[in-house]
Simulated scan of single mutants.
Amino acid sequence: MKIAYIITLPDLGGAQSHVYELMKGVRLSYQIEPVLITGREGWLTQRAKELGIETHIIPDLVREISPVHDWRANCEVQKLLQEIKPDLVHCHSSKAGIIGRWAARRCHISSVFTAHGWAFTDGVPEKKRKVYRFIEKMAGKWCKKIICVSDYDKNLALREIPELKDKLITVHNCIPDTDYRKDWSKYNPEQTLQIATVARFSPQKKIKETLELLSTALQKGMDIHVTFIGDGPLFEANVAYAKALHIGSAVTFLGARTDVEKLLPQYDLFLLLSNWEGFPISIIEAMRAGLPVVASDVGGVKEAVVHGKTGWLIPRDDSTLLQTYEYILHHPTEFVQMGQNARRAYEHQFMIRHMLNAIVENAYF
Rank of each mutant, 00 (worst) to 15 (best):
Q194P: 05
A196Y: 06
G248N: 14
L245Q: 00
Y241W: 09
F201K: 07
Q191T: 12
R159D: 13
Y241E: 08
E261N: 14
C174N: 02
A199H: 08
E190I: 04
F235C: 08
K165H: 15
G230P: 12
D179R: 11
D231W: 02
D153V: 03
D177T: 11
S185Q: 11
Y187G: 12
L245F: 00
P162E: 01
F228I: 00
T197A: 15
P189F: 12
L156A: 09
V260L: 05
G230D: 09
E212I: 14
I224Y: 08
L234S: 09
I224P: 07
D153T: 02
K205R: 07
S249P: 00
P233V: 08
A240T: 14
Y152M: 06
N155H: 13
Y241S: 08
S215P: 00
P176I: 08
D179I: 09
E209I: 06
I161V: 15
Q194E: 15
G255R: 01
V171S: 06
L164A: 09
L193G: 10
L211K: 01
E190T: 07
A242N: 03
L168W: 07
P233S: 11
L234R: 07
L245G: 04
I247M: 09
K206D: 04
T178H: 05
K167D: 08
A199I: 09
D223M: 04
P203C: 09
V198I: 15
T258W: 02
E236W: 02
A244H: 06
C174W: 04
K220A: 11
